[in-house]
């Protein structure tokens, strides 16, 4: 391991320590971790870690906005599942995955068979699905159905809805996706870095691509209820973008992205649970984007301040 790598790993260790210390610090500031808040914080942190894992690959594959299309396209699925099966968590998840996945397939089909560019295709699919979703949601809102409450929370996210079962689902997803990434680490890495080379070497790039995309879909769908469809993409990519600035290896980037994600998700969820009616998604994303801002300014070599200093030093030498 090179000295520079060791330095980055030490930095990552320090970040982990600081984030762990934020829990006792918040207690000292008067936050009461009762049964509900513990679940909310745990759920948020687990979701953030999941997003860090999936987001690292989404960002490096240049697929950041796929997450945006996906989460917006999931809304009509949620509404339809509610109309058909009521407020059944599993049904809502499957509904979200169904229309979200359909949206992605539609984007791929549009950009491969028509002259539409991918960004235009994503814009159109995103808008169409979201429009249908909002219309369905308003329709549900207007019905005299007592069990409808909370469905509109899907738009901005609602952490207070987290119960023990959600924490278990998030934890299981973390283990499953973490295990898959570990098992196929070198394949995913090569596929992301140089897909043509991977294919020439005989890797089954078709199904590896499918597997990686499926992981991103799963993370987005699981996160919808907490982060909300509008800002889900922020939690997916912001921790990875922030982590990218501090590191020089994929291994370091994904670990740091998980830490950043866990911190953003956890603290956002806690903040939103402190006051009734505060939406979770925006608070999580605000924290995550704060981390991005700090990274863009202060990261060695890639940071703005570092580059300014470098330029000044060069000018001094001239």
């Amino acid at each position: 391991m090179s000295p520079e790598d060791r330095r980055v790993w030490r930095f990552i260790g320090a970040v982990a320590l600081c984030m762990a210390l934020s829990v006792p610090l918040s207690m000292a500031l008067g936050v009461q971790y009762d049964y509900t808040l513990t679940h909310v914080a745990l759920g948020g942190a687990l979701l953030g870690a999941l997003c860090g894992m999936a987001g690292t690959f989404a960002v490096l594959r240049g697929q950041s906005l796929i997450g945006d299309t996906l989460s917006h396209a999931a809304l009509p699925g949620v509404a339809l599942a509610f109309l058909l099966f009521g407020r059944e968590p599993l049904a809502l998840l499957l509904g979200a995955a169904a229309t979200g996945g359909l949206g992605i397939l539609l984007v791929n089909w549009l950009s491969s068979t028509t002259r539409l560019k991918q960004d235009a295709a994503m814009g159109i699919v995103l808008a169409a699905f979201f429009a249908i979703g909002v219309a369905l949601l308003s329709y549900i809102q207007g019905r005299a159905d007592a069990r409808q409450a909370g469905l509109d929370k899907f738009i901005f996210g609602q952490a207070a809805a987290i119960i023990a079962r959600d924490v278990v689902i998030l934890g299981a997803a973390c283990l499953l996706i973490g295990a898959l990434l570990l098992a196929f680490w070198k394949e995913f890495k090569l596929l992301t870095f140089d897909p043509d080379f991977a294919r020439v070497n005989g890797l089954p790039t078709g199904w590896l691509n499918g597997l990686l995309s499926t992981l991103i879909v799963i993370v987005c769908v699981i996160g919808l209820q907490l982060a909300g469809v509008i800002l889900m993409v922020g939690l997916l990519i912001a921790p990875a973008v922030a982590a990218r600035q501090w590191t020089r290896r994929l291994e370091q980037m994904i670990v740091l992205a998980m830490l950043f994600g866990a911190f953003s998700g956890g603290s956002g969820a806690v903040l939103s649970a402190l006051e009734r009616g505060l939406p979770t998604g925006p608070l999580m994303i605000a924290v995550a984007c704060g981390l991005v801002l700090v990274a863009l300014l202060f990261a060695p070599q890639r940071g703005v301040l570092w580059q300014l200093r470098q330029r000044r030093r060069l000018r001094g030498e001239v």
């Binding site: 490096l60 870095f193 043509d196």
Partner: peptide, 9 residues
């Protein structure tokens, strides 16, 4: 054909 900003050595 590839992104040289990829985090690797």
């Amino acid at each position: 054909s590839i992104d040289w900003d990829f985090p690797t050595t």
